[in-house]
């Protein structure tokens, strides 16, 4: 069962080709990471899935519906830039958002109370939004996204700007949604986050898909050619070694990609200096992305 199916979707803004012939499939009940550097067309794609923007070409099918907006009441959306009515009370804002998704006033009110209790905001229910701290407002925004019990939740850069506490809250909400069978699609430029949470991903760069599949599939196809290590002298000491394709410094440890036999590499390293850590591993999504998109993408991907 697919939750979302895109086929040959394109969108152009003036001279800028934002999305170019994109096809992808999101399975129901999965957590799907939509990744790529800033400005690569993620938000545009998500907006097209919601029919906020209309695709210039291609087919978009959401929860089995390909008509405009037909499925929107069953979709919850958290945009990247998110705001709330500052002068309304928390409960009224939530009930209103629920109502716009077609909930009755009573059901929306009840759902608001339930969620507020769950995220420990009950005492703020009657307060105006503007009196809430930024962190609390972020929680209210999550609730607004899921209040109508959507089958599909679309989160655009949900982790940006969150404090560590809310990051954890959001992670739990997402995992709980999956347990209930909700499909979650989120976009992020943070590859580590994507790798941690998603079942499958789609990687997009300059409007074009560069990679998709489950995390396991992707990593398996790139093999275990990555070594994570920590040695005296760090990256500098590695300069003299042969057969190193790429190096990346994480400060506390370094990652190298190599065609050499790992055991042989270890021996060579021991000749240089003390080795504190040595681990043969699969490449990270970030590395895979850089390999595909080329070194030019490296800067963007870090952004």
């Amino acid at each position: 069962m697919t939750a979302i199916r895109l086929e040959g979707v394109s969108k152009r803004f003036g001279a800028h080709q934002a999305v170019d012939d994109l096809s992808m499939v999101v399975e129901r009940g999965s957590i799907f990471g939509f990744i790529g550097p800033n400005g690569s067309g993620k938000s545009t794609t998500l907006r097209m899935i919601l029919h906020i923007l209309h695709a210039d070409a291609g087919v978009i099918e959401v929860l089995g519906e390909s008509g405009r907006r037909a499925a929107n009441d069953r979709v919850g959306y958290l945009p990247e830039e998110r705001g709330l009515y500052r002068k309304m009370t928390v409960r009224r804002v939530l009930a209103y958002y629920g109502g716009l998704k077609g909930m009755s006033a009573r059901r929306a009110g009840e759902a608001a109370d339930r969620w507020l209790a769950k995220l420990e905001l009950s005492e703020w229910s009657k307060k105006k939004v503007e009196t809430l701290s930024k962190g609390m407002q972020q929680k209210v925004q999550f609730i607004a996204t899921v209040i109508a019990d959507p089958e599909l939740v679309i989160l655009d850069e949900p982790f940006s700007g969150l404090d560590p506490v809310n990051l954890e809250v959001l992670r739990e909400v997402i995992l709980e949604l999956r347990r209930k069978g909700t499909t979650v699609i989120f976009s992020t430029h943070d590859m580590t986050k994507a790798q941690e949470m998603s079942d499958s991903i789609c990687m997009i760069f300059r409007g074009q898909k560069v990679l998709d599949g489950t995390i396991d599939e992707i990593q398996a196809s790139y093999g275990a050619d990555t070594v994570r290590l920590r040695i005296d002298g760090g990256l500098k000491s590695l300069g003299s070694l042969d057969g190193i394709d790429a190096m990346r410094d994480f400060g506390q440890f370094q990652e190298v990609r190599t065609e050499r036999d790992p055991q042989e590499l270890l021996r060579a390293l021991l000749d240089i200096g003390a080795v504190h850590h040595f681990e043969v591993t699969q490449p990270s999504l970030h590395d895979i992305f850089v390999r595909i998109a080329g070194p030019a993408a490296e800067e963007l991907a870090r952004g």
Binding site: Y77, E81, R82, G83
Partner: peptide, 16 residues
């Protein structure tokens, strides 16, 4: 205000 407070996008994901 809805536009500047970025409320509009949430609204148009629910209503046209």
């Amino acid at each position: 205000e809805e536009k500047m407070q970025r409320i509009a996008e949430i609204l148009v994901s629910s209503v046209s």
